[in-house]
Write a protein that binds this DNA or RNA. Structure first.
Lengths: 196, 196
DNA sequence: CCTCTACTGGGACGATCGTCCCAGTTCCGG
DNA sequence: CCGGAACTGGGACGATCGTCCCAGTAGAGG
């Protein structure tokens, strides 16, 4: 089968992520990846110079593809606190729907910290941008504004989602997670005031 | 050299943690560990049945040895918000002093999630107990009480420290971290009220 | 001082890793 | 239709992995 290189690279990236999600980064050998993609080893090294090159591309790719999704779709007539709860709950649902995906993201982040710190920094920069935009929009739509710089609130919000992810992956306690989301939303309201 | 098995196990555990901290879990091969400890491979398998056995013991060991340390020593006459700021700042200092240690803890947690979920759960259970105790004590000493169940606040606080760790390991932005700590403390105050 | 056993050193095993090579096949441009 | 380049399959290489074996040594108990 003849497949254009670009398409093959995409297929290998997808296969690599699948393997990492289901069996971990340590198990994502070149052979495991090509097996998942249904190719031969030679095709791997025809498309990529090395396993490291694929992994690095995978990190940027997967980070770039990260969607906002923290902002609920239906927003009319809701309070900011309600928006925060619904946004975080939406994230929790996303996490529950595909825990292995987030686990894979976490493993890739750790790999990036050790091997390509600037990639990890870029990844988190993007998270904070997404959070900033969502917080700004949510405040604007509810007639409130933030009492501390939005990037700082965004950073805190990313902390909460990171912690939510890690702790839920560990204990899978949905009830506790929902309680914590409600508490977080209440707490974050202390950083707002009505718009003058 | 004759060394009692118990002592040898301890030395190997220490060496393993050192290797993981400096070069990552993936680089912590049996050979790397015994080299760090200055032993031979045979001694490793005389003290432990397998590498996995050492890793599992290392997780429980390191979790059990985790200290509170989130509560500042000098507490008289300070507000709860101030205590929260100082506690979190203390944690940040601890993180800055030995980033690789926390990175190693994170890698061990991820390993545990995949290989021994119950160990990871126990680890996070302990974190939350520590946080609960600290929050309870801090509230008691400042004449305040928590408006939501303490375990829920503790869970949120662990989220914040997790996020603090992950984000700081990635961007090493101390200034932003301090701003976020201040915001977190302010936000958490919304979950308190004066004691009746 | 001797002996017996707990313990060590070094080498070896099979498995798996990332990478490479090369003979063959497939298909596009002419 | 056909030549040549893009691409593939399979095998092979050296390195490293976890684990094991066994001859030998050291030191405590007699």
């Amino acid at each position: 089968m003849r497949i254009p290189v670009a398409e093959r690279r995409g297929a290998l990236l997808t296969a690599a992520f699948t393997v990492i999600a289901s069996r971990g980064l340590a198990a994502a050998s070149t052979r495991a990846i090509v097996a998942e993609a249904g190719m031969s080893l030679a095709s791997f090294h025809y498309a990529f110079d090395s396993r490291d090159e694929l992994l690095q591309l995978l990190i940027t790719e997967v980070t770039a593809g990260e969607q906002a999704a923290v902002l609920p779709a239906e927003r009319a007539g809701k309070s900011l606190e309600q928006l925060l709860i619904e946004g975080l709950t939406g994230y929790l649902e996303h996490l529950r729907a595909d825990p292995q995906r987030e686990q894979a993201m976490l493993e890739l982040t750790q790999y990036a910290i050790r091997s390509r710190p600037e990639l990890a920094a870029q990844q988190y920069g993007r998270y904070q941008e997404i959070a900033s935009a969502a917080l700004q929009l949510a405040a604007a739509e509810t007639g409130t504004c933030w009492r501390v710089p939005v990037p700082t609130v965004a950073r805190l919000l990313v902390h909460v989602t990171d912690g939510l992810t890690l702790t839920w992956l560990v204990d899978r306690d949905e009830h506790a997670a929902r309680q914590t989301i409600a508490a977080a939303a209440t707490a974050l309201m202390a950083l707002t005031r009505p718009r003058p």
